[in-house]
Design a protein around this nucleic acid. Structure first.
Lengths: 231, 231
DNA sequence: CAACATGCTAAACGCTTGTTCAGTCCACTG
DNA sequence: CAGTGGACTGAACAAGCGTTTAGCATGTTG
């Protein structure tokens, strides 16, 4: 079955409620959304929401596990698609770029990440753990490929890269406001990624003209783009 | 002349209420805190909270402007104390380190930053704007001092550095969970800062032993105090 | 056919919320 | 001393919350 995404039109009312709840939760935060609002958005009564999910807490858990499942499936594809590892622009901007590729452009999932990560709940910790594993594996593969060195503390380095990725996700609207473009948008990333990449490859001191004194990324640096995959 | 900090014991009830509200808001989010909880925490009735601040929204605004004033004063000192600029470990870990130096260790201010930045309100935008100015000025000074190069897009580079700083603030508890130490604590930063610094000075490819393959960028890049060797 | 589970709703329940109100205390002022 | 005004409170208010309940269709099963 088509895994997490169900583009069919005759979804069960349960799924409609779950998706509308996700949309509202992502936009205003779970605490600020009422059961009646969820019901109204899904075109059903508030009582039916309770009937299907038991309680508001149950609805939250259902949304959480749905989002978690979607992300874990996506993370699995991410870890697998690059084989050894995607390097350069893919590895560096992995999260933002991955979202753009794997999710519809108006998906509420990235926005819901905020509440998942900042509410201090168990789901957030679990997701962060998964992301850390991915970041750790990516860094290891880059080390093996010669495109990066493990730091004194490889785990700390992996967390550092992960936090930087997540920061763009959490604060991209602030960044867009002062920059004039959104680093998470398709064209905004074209301006953002090179800047980020230049720091990662050569540090802050390297000049733009200088491509970086590093040991020149060996294997297949040319084919960074993953196109030709319509949907 | 300690400006924002008032260590006196006979603070007005209004200030007590404001501070307790800040504490609760930072811990649970403004939306999840009731007027009765604020009153109880301050040792007064809920009605008195309304009497002093008009409404819950008024209380929020009072807390916001108080936090904003504190941060702006702190940012002003920060921009001034380094003169031209603090470099190396200070500039890199500026926000986290600055909080440790300028605020009591159990201050709710850093935690409240989350809600300020993520609620999408005007106060959050204004604070981010101030932080951006500071980051921009710091980067400019580093460029002038030779410790950094402006990127292709200096504004984007400043935002990149700022977001990385803020990420530690927003997600340090997740980081602490997978790392075993909190990057925002005093001793945790001793392990975190060198890792961050090594990426900023030499990029991801530079090895710890290798001080950086950089073009030996002229003026005073050699002197770094703390992270010279094993700690 | 009767019995029953399922999907669903309108109405109501008890509770908490932010806010209001009437009134008490108490330090000042004339 | 009478009077005024600000700090402060307990009780009450309407509104909104999550949840419960009783009941209506509809389709499936014996």
């Amino acid at each position: 079955m088509s895994s997490a995404f169900s583009p069919s039109e005759d979804r069960t009312a349960r799924a409609v409620i779950r998706d509308e709840a996700l949309r509202l939760f992502a936009a205003h935060g779970p605490g600020a959304v009422t059961m009646r609002q969820v019901g109204a958005a899904a075109g059903v009564s508030a009582a039916l929401v309770v009937h299907h999910f038991g309680s508001k807490e149950g609805l939250r858990e259902a949304v959480d596990s749905h989002v978690l499942a979607t992300f874990e499936a996506m993370l699995g594809e991410l870890a697998g698609e690059g084989g050894a590892v995607s390097l350069d622009s893919e590895a560096a901007g992995s999260l933002g770029e991955a979202f753009l590729r794997h999710l519809p452009p108006d998906s509420p999932m990235p926005a819901y990440l905020r509440w998942l990560l900042l509410s201090g709940g168990e789901a957030g910790h679990r997701l962060f753990g998964k992301l850390f594993e991915l970041s750790r594996a990516t860094l290891d593969a880059m080390v093996a490929g010669g495109t990066a060195a493990p730091g004194r503390d490889p785990a700390a380095r992996a967390v550092f890269l992960l936090l930087n990725d997540l920061a763009v996700l959490l604060l991209h609207d602030h960044a867009a406001r002062v920059l004039g473009f959104d680093p998470l948008s398709a064209d905004g990333m074209a301006r953002w990624a090179p800047e980020m990449l230049s720091v990662y490859t050569g540090g802050l001191t390297a000049s733009p003209a200088d491509p970086g004194p590093g040991p020149d990324s060996g294997p297949g640096s040319g084919r960074s783009h993953a196109e030709g995959d319509p949907s």
